[in-house]
Design a protein around this nucleic acid. Structure first.
Length: 826
DNA sequence: AGCACGCCGACT
DNA sequence: GTCGGCGTGCTC
């Protein structure tokens, strides 16, 4: 290759052609990352294809500076997939590729160099190697970029590798990005002179300080357990010693400390899952599995919509199909919503597939991410399980993609482009690979229901709960509605919990059973308001009122749920000085207080973003619940994937939260949430009960949830959607305009929308730009235009693409973001 | 996205 | 007379 076409991480819809210097011609290939000059900057790009003849181009060709990979970072399949993503979601190819590579890989993957041997003469003479080797002379350890800086020239990585292969130097490639540096920890070990086991005993003799002795003993203990270099914190804890005792040992030269990158897989935290439970599939599971297995056998593309009610055993079907795929020597991806990525789920897969699984978790460090990515790419691991971004896992030979809880809106990416929907990308990726895609849910999205109806997907149903070991099948829980307006009139309801709900909770506590309570709103109270003048505190940077939160010490503070800013609360109204401030509405913290008040004998656990922020926060709370706490109260994160056999009551404190949002999917989302959380109640031997508190007892979403009637809800909701040409019967996209000055944002929105109208086909309906439902977030004003097409999303895409191209650049600090198939407030 | 260039207003 | 905000255009 004498020239290459390179995709760059800039929002420009084109590739750039670069020349390849002779010495890189045999190392560069499609999919490799390359370092290139771009204007005044240097960027990491990915080679998309061989470029045109250098003679035929009418611009000044620049050369690539370096080839950064030995193996392609992007397979040809990933190039095709990301290209599709870019086209479909109207972003640049570079942005799509960026999403597929582990974050940080582009920024600075540094190569640390060290000279190990005296170089032979021919290398010292070498035009590029000479200065490099001279620079390395006498330096212990340096980075490639530092050398480049000192020499003022580029140092081709290919050359460095050749030198390394000959043993002249040692290359250590590591991720380093100042913003998210690789995690390191301090480890302790015996110094070289005191390595021998008997030395420890001698040391203990010599030492005066009892703490120092304890440290030596503890360190020797760790060594006997096969951990010669324990973590400093672990050592100090075991010896019950402090830093100062350890430091004096270090000063005496007996032990030394080492900084090492923590390479910890999330799996290490979990106990060995034990052997896989041997289960035979239940008839409805078997039927679903057979259909999937036939498609897997054929190695041809097919997408299944697996509608299985809660407790019907969808996971076993996934596992059985995955086993078939692995047996063919192919690989699989399991997508789960972030909140469902609990140890429970992971352990089930792990007990079947052992250590061939890469678990991709949002709390992984960059180093962990990179490791998992590399191992998947190199075929060392053949299963990836993770949230949204796992659909872009770098595997070859893909045979199966499972999207569990496919209706979950967390599969839609928001903030940085590409704003892709992982479920739809999964279907496309399966298609490109002749693979099978399984979309599973107890409450499928209406889009998927219609796609099945239209024959794009094959629908499979599992309408029964799986029986337990004793052979008894759990019945679906009995659902009751409690009308809060009635309760208020009858009982002068004070708090958030009605009489019937209180009685039901009381009964579980007395019987030693457990309760799950959903209150889908965090904090103490959503609003604080002055009773005299109506004043309420607004966030300084966002156009929303601040939420009242309880502090750890029991006091109050204000928090903005959009930007996270906190403020102390006030004693008196700053506007009229009245002392009469009321906290209106109910969040999880307030319900927690009420529960502690009403049931002083019960152990109450609260699970929301605030209580789980700390690492392992989820696990801690869940294991306490498993150990027998009475009540688990939480936001929607408790609705998914939890499986506790002693839960016989699920209460929804306020089923109306979210129902009144200005979003055409509000009903669908409420129905899904209620059905999912109801599914947590009752297992084989203990019939469950569900209580929904509401002020809208007649509402469709509640009425259908009452009867567990998914099909009824779907049919009714689809009728409404059809009339309004909302998805799945029409296609939607939004354009959001953002910037610091409202007038300017509004003008930008109007001009852009005008241009959009000019470029649109006749069936595209374009709304007027309007302020977003929360007009200002983090000091930025936001306006939005909604596009709708009855016929095809292609019309939306081409209109957007053309407008973007013709409109050109927007002022500094202002942004236009396109969201195809937007999910959210619409 | 960055970054430079070129155009107009308010300061030394 | 310059400093600097902001709009526009370009990057192989």
């Amino acid at each position: 290759m004498t020239t290459v076409d390179v995709v760059l991480p800039v929002p420009v819809d084109q590739t750039y052609t670069y020349g390849v210097p002779t010495e890189m011609r045999d190392t560069v290939d499609i999919g490799h990352r390359v370092l290139v000059p771009f204007g005044k900057r240097r960027l990491t790009g990915v080679v998309a294809s061989e470029g045109p003849d250098p003679e035929s181009v009418d611009f000044a060709l620049k050369d690539i500076l370096d080839v950064l990979d030995e193996r392609p970072a992007c397979s040809e399949e990933m190039l095709r997939l990301t290209k599709w993503i870019a086209n479909y979601y109207v972003c640049s190819w570079g942005e799509a590729i960026k999403a597929a590579l582990p974050s940080g890989i582009n920024v600075k993957s540094t190569h640390r160099l060290r000279r190990t041997e005296e170089p032979p003469g021919q290398w010292v003479e070498h035009e590029q190697a000479g200065p490099l080797l001279a620079d390395l002379e006498g330096r212990d350890d340096t980075t490639l970029s530092a050398i480049r800086k000192r020499l003022g020239t580029t140092v081709p990585l290919g050359l460095v590798r050749r030198l390394a292969a000959e043993g002249i130097l040692e290359v250590n490639t590591q991720l380093s990005d100042a913003r998210v540096s690789a995690k390191t920890a301090t480890y302790v070990r015996f110094s070289a002179a005191f390595q021998h086991p008997s030395a420890a005993a001698d040391l203990v003799e010599q030492l005066r300080g009892s703490k120092q002795k304890a440290l030596i003993e503890a360190l020797a203990g760790f060594r006997e357990e096969g951990t010669p270099e324990p973590l400093r914190t672990d050592l100090l804890e075991r010896a019950e010693a402090s830093h100062s005792s350890l430091n004096s040992l270090v000063d005496k030269g007996m032990v030394e400390t080492v900084e090492k990158e923590v390479v910890r897989s999330p799996l290490d935290d979990l106990p060995d899952p034990g052997p896989a439970p041997d289960h035979t599939l239940h008839p409805s599971q078997q039927e679903a599995y057979d259909a999937v297995a036939r498609a897997v056998e054929d190695q041809s593309y097919q997408t299944f919509l697996l509608h299985g009610i809660t407790g019907s055993g969808k996971t076993e079907v996934y596992i059985a199909a995955l086993k078939d795929v692995l047996a063919q020597g192919r690989t699989g991806i399991i997508l789960v919503p972030e909140i469902a990525l609990t140890p429970q789920t992971v352990q089930r897969f792990r007990s079947h597939f052992g250590d061939t699984i890469a678990v991709l978790h949002s709390q992984m460090s960059m180093g962990e991410r990179f490791d998992a990515w590399r191992q998947l790419r190199d075929g060392e691991l053949s299963i990836a399980i993770g949230p949204r971004s796992a659909v872009l896992a770098p595997m070859d030979n893909l045979g199966l993609i499972v999207v569990d809880e496919e209706h979950e809106s967390s599969y839609k990416q928001f903030d940085p482009a590409p704003r892709y929907h992982a479920r739809d990308v999964a279907v496309m990726r399966a298609y490109l690979n002749d693979a099978v895609c399984v979309l599973g849910s107890a409450t499928p999205s209406l889009e998927s229901v219609m796609n099945a109806e239209w024959g794009k997907y094959t629908r499979l149903n599992m309408p029964e709960r799986v029986p337990d070991s004793s052979g008894t099948s759990a019945e679906l829980p009995n659902v009751e509605i409690v009308d809060l307006t009635l309760q208020k009139r009858k009982h002068q309801l004070e708090g958030a919990l009605s009489e019937p709900l209180r009685a039901a909770i009381r009964a579980r506590i007395d019987r030693g059973e457990q309760t799950i309570l959903l209150q889908n709103r965090r904090g103490f109270a959503p609003v604080i308001e002055c009773c005299d003048c109506g004043w309420a505190p607004l966030c300084r940077d966002c156009s929303v009122t601040m939420t009242v939160h309880k502090t750890r010490s029991g006091g109050r503070m204000l928090q903005c749920h959009y930007c996270g800013r906190t403020e102390p609360t006030m004693r008196a109204c700053p506007s009229c000085n009245s002392q009469d401030l009321h906290q209106i509405g109910t969040g999880t913290q307030r319900v927690e207080d009420e529960l502690n008040d009403v049931f002083p004998d019960a152990e109450v656990l609260r699970m929301d973003r605030d209580s789980t922020r700390k690492k392992h926060g989820h696990h801690k709370i869940l294991s306490q619940f498993r150990n027998g706490a009475d009540i688990l109260l939480g936001t929607q994160m408790i609705a998914k994937g939890l499986d506790f056999s002693r839960v016989t009551l699920v209460g929804v404190v306020d089923a109306d939260v979210g129902l009144l949002l200005p979003d055409f999917r509000a009903e669908e989302r409420t129905f899904q949430l209620l059905t999912q959380v109801a599914g947590r109640a009752g297992r084989a031997d203990l019939r469950g009960e569900v209580i929904l508190q509401t002020r809208n007892p007649e509402h469709k979403a509640l009425q259908f949830a009452l009867d567990h009637d998914f099909d009824g809800f779907a049919a009714s909701e689809l009728e409404d959607r059809k009339i309004l040409s909302y998805p799945p019967f029409g296609h939607l996209a939004t354009v959001e305009f953002r910037g610091p000055k409202e007038a300017r944002v509004e003008r930008l929105a109007e001009n852009w929308t005008k241009a959009l109208r000019k470029h649109s086909a006749s069936d595209v309906l374009i709304g007027d730009p309007s302020p977003a439902s929360v007009k200002r977030v983090k000091k930025q004003f936001r306006y939005r235009t909604v596009l709708k097409s009855r016929q095809s999303q292609k019309h939306l895409q081409s209109a957007l693409r053309r407008t973007e191209q013709s409109f050109g650049s927007v002022p500094n600090g202002y942004h236009v973001s396109i969201d195809v198939d937007a999910v959210g407030l619409l």
